[in-house]
Design a protein around this nucleic acid. Structure first.
Lengths: 246, 246
DNA sequence: CGCATATTTGATAGATTTCAATTTATGTGG
DNA sequence: CCACATAAATTGAAATCTATCAAATATGCG
């Protein structure tokens, strides 16, 4: 009974009405567990995909090949996420996936996913919605890099991550985020040095502090405001949908 | 017989093997034609979607709500694209869509799309792949803003757009791109003034010039190199796929 | 303890934005 | 076709933001 599979199912049912058979089909997916030390690449850019990776524990990132030494992380994945789920439909990896901290994944063969997709039309529909929510997140990241300054970018990332980790509670709280400042800089498209200085200014403004792999939100309201953060894209508003026959 | 519908079908069949019935189902989609003056918003952020918009002529953009006056364009859509196709699955618009120049669209009701999706499993699959290719493009834009300087960003955008407009031919050619420098600045996340100066430097480097709504590629090889452009994400490599029963 | 990695700081160079003004295009009505 | 109004492009100067380089300090781990 993988907790992470239940998290994944939760994401699917947050948008899509699934029958109990469909839910069972998801929960009974099996795969092989892999323990990944920090910085391990578990999907290679350019490879042909035959399985997907469910994040069971830890944090993973999508890494796009960028010019020379400069690399860009274009997605963050937490427990219950399947970063390379798109590979079921398009099995060519244009990017790599790496463990940002010691993590563990469950590798599930495409054939298992295809089987339940073909047998249960609602699952195909739910997966499409799941993929679309990730696409929406990427758009928001794009706005973050294109339209905000350093401190706001970092703030926005912290806000998003707090919600995705289900960590938000009250106006002050903290949550684990075991990444380095260098990795953070590759997420927000800044130099590591500048991230360090921006973190300092956020700390001095008493909005948020980030140390030893943990984010301490000091003033959630203020942080949300400074970041221009609107959580609409993360949460499905409105009721569960389904147009496939049950 | 809409040429733009044929373009759309081409995008679907570039990834997915469709039966001739399925192709016919696509081509016989109907909707209402709308002529849009430049800057018209045709999908409002926050609205509930009941139709999709096929770009018949012109150029459209996806506009994300950003802080205050600063706005970010997170997607560009050309003839044959359906920018808001995702709305069939998630009918809440988190962003607006606008005409970047005088354009015309065909508004097709969701119910028509849903009908052919339910009747033809291959179409659902093809649409999912189509949505994923757009998501991949957004990731590449994210890398563009996060890891490249001004001139490279602009170059990269021109390279991508040349291919998407099927304009590339030889080492020097030109193609129409009826957007303003201000709109370009909202695409690449820079100020309009800096875009203007970067364009000047690209012109002086004899790589590309952009004037009166037209891109003149002076040295395609050089431009691709300066941009660090790799077209893999735009073109589906490998043969047509399908795992739904025909 | 000692190495490797991560964080912090200072100084400097470079990139980009902003503000303000000017020039050049573009479109429209007479 | 011209005159006008408007939008777009261009330029200069200064301020701000961000990157780079180099070094020092801290942290984690065997």
């Amino acid at each position: 009974m993988q907790l992470s599979l239940q998290f994944f199912l939760q994401m699917l049912t947050s948008t899509t009405k699934l029958t109990s058979q469909e839910c069972d089909a998801i929960l009974s997916l099996t795969g092989t567990r892999e323990e990944l030390p920090s910085h391990t690449t578990f999907v290679d850019q350019g490879s042909t995909l035959e399985s997907v990776c469910l994040v069971v524990e830890g944090l993973c990132g999508r890494l796009e090949p960028a010019k020379e030494e400069r690399q860009q992380i274009t997605g963050l994945y937490v427990k219950g996420d399947i970063p390379d789920l798109y590979g079921v439909y398009i099995p060519n990896a244009n990017e790599s996936f790496i463990a940002l901290c010691p993590s563990s994944i469950l590798r599930i063969r495409h054939s298992s996913i295809r089987k339940i997709i073909n047998e249960h039309p609602g699952i195909a529909e739910a997966i499409t919605r799941y993929l679309l929510i990730y696409a929406a997140t990427t758009s928001v990241w794009l706005v973050n890099l294109g339209a905000r300054d350093a401190a706001s970018r970092i703030s926005h990332f912290f806000c998003e991550t707090a919600l995705r980790l289900r960590a938000e509670e009250g106006n002050a709280f903290s949550f684990p985020l075991r990444i380095t400042q260098t990795q953070l800089s590759e997420i927000v498209g800044l130099s590591a040095v500048h991230v360090n200085r921006s973190l300092k200014s956020l700390r001095e403004a008493e909005l948020v502090s980030f140390m030893s792999g943990r984010v301490h939100v000091l003033d959630w309201q203020g942080l949300v405001k400074a970041a221009g953060f609107d959580p609409a894209y993360l949460r499905h508003q409105g009721k569960q949908l389904r147009f496939a026959p049950a």
